[in-house]
Design a protein around this nucleic acid. Structure first.
Length: 462
RNA sequence: UGCCCUGUAGCUCAGUGGUAGAGCAGGUGACUGUUAAUCACUUGGUCGUUGGUUCGAAUCCAACCGGGGCAGCCA
């Protein structure tokens, strides 16, 4: 009896098998006079399985259609390969072409630029590079759930449609069912949001943090992992309009414990992916980023450098390096400063904490010096900021004072302030960009190449 | 949003004022075990678009459109 096997299972087989079925897409084909070889890939792993097709097959003359890109179903015997380069191959007993390709099929058996492949996002997962990226993406997502589950965090889903119009994390996408050509207007001519679907103006979420705090101050330890939307007009290799963010939030947790978790988290999921995706990571290390595996192992092997913002500024002021943006206490660390710290000075991931309160949002906890807040960023070589977090301000009066200072309307955040009014506790959390972590783990340098169908300004076509 | 680079065959590119090229892919043929197979032959182009300069523009100029990079914003 024939059984359908995935290629990953067959290639790991311990024994020959008399009759198996494999189905997949032809990656390449090598012809000889009386037989040909197919390299078949079904997406289950990076490697192809070699199919040997002899001219004794009844439909041999029709098998010209089994060309690069075609989908085929093969029945045959798994046998030890006579040739070099692979342990197993399939001696075909029947080959059926399920779906042919014509000469417009754009993927050739040669290297393509990632820029070209971005234009055919529906076909690029059939390449070695993108197949590997999206397998790792899946494993990394699973590793994240597994990490938190092992530590008794609860997975919560925060709303994607949100009403607060000033969460402070950037420009927001409007969500509306109003007729854009003829919206209802109030007496003064302004668009009447109260007639909109939710009875008010609404937006796509830029962060689930605030709702996460409500859940953490009930369930203790929670995390969210979901889509996030930013309408910033960013044109860089590390920004997307739609991306996924991981946001743990813990009650009874201070900044130090928050930093410990962020470090354990980054290391834990990297270790998991090194174990579960070794073939794909070896591919990245060979063709995408030669130093990848060494760097990932380096990250696992030692503690992240941890230093305060003030210490970081002192290092930058004294290093003798000339920066385009001036370093001064009270200013944001620029990309070039972060790069210097992680790539040159420490050559390691770096956690910077206790930032000046004037450059941070209202919800971060004010330190005793009244100049800094309990914020922290994890910076990694090559990418920069991968985690941003803080201890949250749990003291009612101080939170209200901060909102006033920063011009945040307390009415808009009444429920959030309530959390400090009723059984408030110290709590902390952070946000981690899932795609940025995936870039770090794979060595892929453009965020558009780790998202199956990326959305960036001016680009949502496919 | 600012600055910079770029657009020639399906892909990757050469061609800097005189009428279009290569490699790969595709097609045809050869080859008894190949590994991005190899060998021979071969199809394929309004040189991003529009306008201008010139006897003549892929080449020079302008505008527009597309792609990329860096910075800011952040994750």
């Amino acid at each position: 009896m024939q059984t359908r096997f995935s290629i990953v299972d067959l290639l790991q087989s311990e024994e020959a098998k008399s009759l198996v079925t494999v189905q997949g897409w032809v990656r390449t084909r090598r012809d000889s006079k009386t037989f040909f070889f197919l390299e078949l890939n079904d997406g289950s792993c990076l490697a192809n399985i070699q199919i040997v097709v002899n001219d004794n097959l009844l439909n041999f003359s029709q098998l010209g259609a089994a060309s690069t890109g075609a989908s085929v179903s093969v029945v045959g015997a798994l046998v030890a390969s006579q040739g070099k380069g692979q342990r197993w191959e399939i001696q075909a007993e029947s080959v059926e072409v399920l779906g042919e390709v014509d000469d417009r099929f754009p993927l050739q058996k040669k290297r393509h630029s990632v820029e070209f492949l971005r234009e055919i996002a529906h076909l690029r997962p059939r390449t070695n590079l993108f197949g590997a990226v999206f397998r790792v993406r899946s494993k990394l997502a699973f590793a994240i759930h597994s990490f938190f589950n092992q530590r008794d965090f609860f997975y919560v889903n925060t709303p994607i449609v949100t009403a607060s119009d000033c969460e402070g994390a950037g420009e927001m996408f409007r969500v509306s069912t109003l007729d854009i050509d003829n919206p209802p207007r109030s007496e003064d001519g302004a668009v009447d949001d109260s007639k909109d679907f939710f009875g008010r103006s609404t937006y796509l979420t830029v962060s689930g943090q605030l709702e996460g705090e409500a859940m953490a101050t009930a369930l203790g330890k929670i995390y969210t992992f979901g889509p996030t939307f930013r309408a910033e007009n960013s044109h860089t290799s590390r920004h997307a309009s739609e991306f996924w963010m991981v946001e743990p939030e813990m009650a009874f947790c201070d900044l130090k414990q928050d930093m410990d978790l962020a470090e354990d988290f980054v290391k834990g999921v990297i270790k998991d992916v090194l174990d579960t995706c070794s073939e794909d990571l070896a591919f990245f290390s060979k063709f995408v980023d030669k130093g990848l595996l060494d760097r990932l192992n380096f990250v696992l092997d030692r503690p992240f450098v941890r230093l305060s913002y003030t210490e970081a500024v002192d290092i930058l002021l004294e290093c003798g390096q000339s920066f385009e943006h001036k370093v001064s206490w009270g200013a944001n660390l620029q990309s070039e400063h972060e790069r210097y710290l992680t790539e040159e000075h420490f050559k390691s991931p770096v956690t910077v904490y206790d930032y000046p309160k004037i450059i941070k949002p209202f919800y971060m906890r004010v330190n005793d010096d009244d100049k800094t807040v309990g914020a922290m960023d994890v910076l990694v070589p090559g990418i920069g900021e991968i985690v941003g977090g803080s201890q949250r301000e749990e003291r009612l009066e101080i939170l209200q004072q901060r909102m006033k200072e920063l011009g945040v309307e307390e009415d808009e955040y009444k429920w959030y302030v309530d959390l400090r009014r009723f059984g408030s506790v110290p709590h902390s959390g952070f946000g981690l960009g899932f795609e940025r972590l995936l870039m770090f783990v794979t060595g892929v340098s453009n965020i558009r190449d780790v998202i199956p169908f990326p959305r960036t300004p001016g680009n949502a076509g496919l």
